[in-house]
Nucleic acid binder design. Structure first.
Length: 277
DNA sequence: AGTGCGGCCTGTCCGC
DNA sequence: TGCGGACAGGCCGCAC
């Protein structure tokens, strides 16, 4: 993984949300500048006409979606796999891949940079949770709706590998490749094991592991937030002691066996063949 | 319904 | 040194 690369999974999105909130909440939008409309889906044409004059009254998150509420309409932003949303001062000139600027009263700008353009921006009338892309999402992993029993119940009859199951946003949001890999390692579960052939007690371990690694990354990401304006907001996983992700060929921190990589569901999956069963 | 996979996109790295 | 190709990733949309 290239040094300094930002990969927005749930902790990174939550860190971004906390970072921009103080500068965005209660602010009126003065202008919208779209430099590159072609993201995963085009940035809505009407945004530059309809957003200015409105006030951001909510800065929320659902899964990996940022929800910027303005009364009865919401700006919904997904960072894809290379997107960064930051608050910059008005005099900071845009650079390559700065696709969208939202000028705020008082001088700051909310700036979206996304080299790979896998991100998306929606402009939605009504409750953002009813947006078609959000309506079918599974529970938040750090909420009380996400339980071992829930995971176990959802897995009944599923023959897909547990790693694909865990990364399915309809099952639970926020488990991207990094955190799914780490959680399965911590729980000692082989990523290829069919989801429906895992006992409730083992799902309890997976549930706890996923929550722990996400919480840890959010805490660590938060430590870089002291001055988010103009700052880099380093992703939480860069400060985590990753146990499996990115360690293929290196010794397992639990048993010493060499970690290996296999492709599971089109994704590179690192695991310990000895202690993950 | 569940599952698997191609496609989107660019920066980085590897081998020749 | 230059260049082609593989790879990384989330997630949609399609085919079976």
């Amino acid at each position: 993984m290239p040094a300094g690369f930002f990969m927005p999974e749930l902790p990174e999105v939550e860190t971004t949300r906390r970072g921009i909130e103080p500068a965005v909440a209660g602010r009126r939008v003065e202008k919208v500048i779209v430099r590159e409309q072609r993201l995963r889906w085009p940035i809505p044409r009407e945004l530059p006409h309809e957003l200015p004059g409105r006030v951001f009254d909510q800065v929320g998150r659902r899964g990996k979606y940022l929800l910027l509420g303005t009364g009865d309409r919401s700006l919904i932003i997904h960072l894809g796999m290379s997107g960064r949303l930051s608050v910059v001062t008005e005099d900071l000139a845009p650079t390559r891949h700065d696709h969208l600027d939202i000028l705020l009263a008082g001088g700051n700008r909310l700036r979206l940079n996304d080299p790979r353009r896998f991100g998306s921006v929606f402009w939605w009338a009504g409750d953002p949770l009813n947006h078609p892309r959000l309506a079918g999402l599974g529970p938040e992993p750090l909420s009380g709706h996400f339980t071992p029993q829930y995971l176990y119940t959802m897995a009944r009859g599923r023959r897909a590998p547990v790693k694909a199951f865990l990364m399915d946003a309809r099952v639970v949001v926020g488990a991207g490749n990094i955190y799914a890999t780490e959680a399965l390692f911590m729980a000692g579960i082989h990523p290829r094991r069919p989801a429906g052939r895992i006992a409730l007690t083992r799902y309890a371990e997976l549930h706890a592991a996923l929550r722990a690694v996400l919480k840890d990354a959010i805490t660590r990401g938060g430590t870089t937030l002291r001055d988010y304006v103009g700052a880099d907001g380093r992703p939480g996983f860069f400060q985590l002691d990753l146990r499996a992700y990115g360690r293929t060929g290196e010794p397992c921190k639990r048993c010493g066996h060499t970690l290996r990589t296999e492709r599971i569901g089109q994704r590179a999956s690192v695991f310990c063949p000895r202690c993950q069963r």
